[in-house]
Amino acid sequence: MIRLRGVTKRFRDGAREVAVLRGVDLDVAPGELVAIVGPSGSGKSTLLHVAGALDRDFEGEAVVAGTALGGLDDAARAELRNRAVGFVFQSFNLLPALSALENVMLPGILRRPGPDGRIAEIRARARDALLRVGLADRAEAPPSRLSGGERQRVALARALLSRPAVLLADEPTGNLDAASGADVIRLFSELARGGVSVLVVTHEERVSDAATRVLRLSDGRLG
């Protein structure tokens, strides 16, 4: 789950300070798919970064997957991202030198070695994740040989490797054609039904149509 209370985020623009988020309150329960819509520059991505423990310089209270973000050091926030948060980006953000399978393995590689920390086991789990998004046969392909839809499904498989409690997606269908976008939206819905808290930032109606709730972010405030 995600719980934000009074979250305010300011950026410094030269001498003046600009508030991108102004006292945002948000709850995303397990099993919910919440869509945030709003114009460009309204702070949607910043909200995702706060909820995903990527951004720490904010005011207010944020609790993600049962962990209060306030006071966590860099290592603890990294561990939380690794174990509980999955990210999907509009531009996929796959590492070009790695194969699809290796990209999916990354969260497992970055995890502190434990009982499930062996490379072979991480590889097997990554294959399962690719199978789940329908790309088992494209495991060894580099991102450059994948279509946009396939790349986003690889990114989704990567986000799912750690079986996260929270999935954060930033314009996940922005670079996809209609069919690929529909596939991704269907996968998001399946994940939400499976108990994952899914928060999607989008300006596309087809995404918000699939959401259980749609919230509008405007002037840094959620409405």
């Binding site: 995903g52 990527l54 860099d74 290592a75 926030r77 990294a78 561990e79 991202r81 690794n82 174990r83 990210f87 953000n93 590492l95 990354l106 969260p107 970055l110 995890r111 990567r158 750690s162």
Partner: peptide
Amino acid sequence: ARELAVLQALGAAPAD
């Protein structure tokens, strides 16, 4: 830089 930022998003600490 973007690849390294992605690694951080996936769970890499600055020390990593």
